[in-house]
Amino acid sequence: MSVRRSNMRLILWGLMLTAAVLVIPHLDVLFRLWLPDAREVIYRRDSFVSLLGNHLAIVTAAGLIATLLGVGAGIAVTRHWGKDFLPLVAQLASIGQTFPPVAVLALSVPALGFGTLPTIIALVLYGLLPIVRNTLAGLQGIDDDVMEAARGMGMSSLQRLWQVELPLSSDIILAGIRTSVTINIATAAIGSTIGAKTLGDPLIAGIVNGNGAYVIQGAIVIALLALCVDSLFERIGCALPSYDQGRI
């Protein structure tokens, strides 16, 4: 996708998300038409702005930690000194991804209890897997000739990592982070069942109280957030060093 189009997409979804968060609390009349008998038709236990902020904070924290750990682990097991761990880490990353995220989230409760922190830890654990997997795929996919040439130019191993390996695999690593964050936005919404304050709150409250309006409001904001973040990744992808030259 061209830079221009991905910019447009990002701005469009961003504006719609902002509008939704700000406008929904004032749509009393509209939702009243649909549910004339309901006691309350707008979710007001928390403002959508604060829920959005919380949701984003949880996903961002989990995403940053998972990226650091995941890319770090991927680099470590592809170095000479860590390559013993490569087969196990690679297998673990691919088997772990078959675990449904909701099951991992649920299992974090017996281990860690209810609340925001257990949610973040579960998101980090699950979010690591696609990042590790893609980091490995990216680093291992680099042509041996390229590495040979870098070595021949007298680059140190650190220079090779920073100037050759990471730039060449940046698009694959980014794709892993994107998958991880997409899953985490969805899982964080379910996190409101284990006591984290997220955009899942209005949805769960709506389901429990049989209030369809709450459900729709929560669903719209979560969906827009996911699309917005996804187009942000699309845009970042355009700025990567490996974007136009393609992989060798």
């Binding site: 649909w34 997409t182 936005i185 969805a186 919404a189 379910i190 899942g200 949805l203 709506g206 369809g212 459900v215 729709i216 929560g218 669903a219 719209i220 979560i222 969906a223 996911a226 699309l227 996804d230």
Partner: peptide, 20 residues
């Protein structure tokens, strides 16, 4: 791919009104 991006909980929620 847009559908795939929308979180499951939200998609369930969005289907509520039309199906009802």
């Amino acid at each position: 791919s847009v559908i795939q991006t929308i979180p499951s909980l939200a998609l369930f929620g969005l289907l509520l009104a039309p199906l009802a």
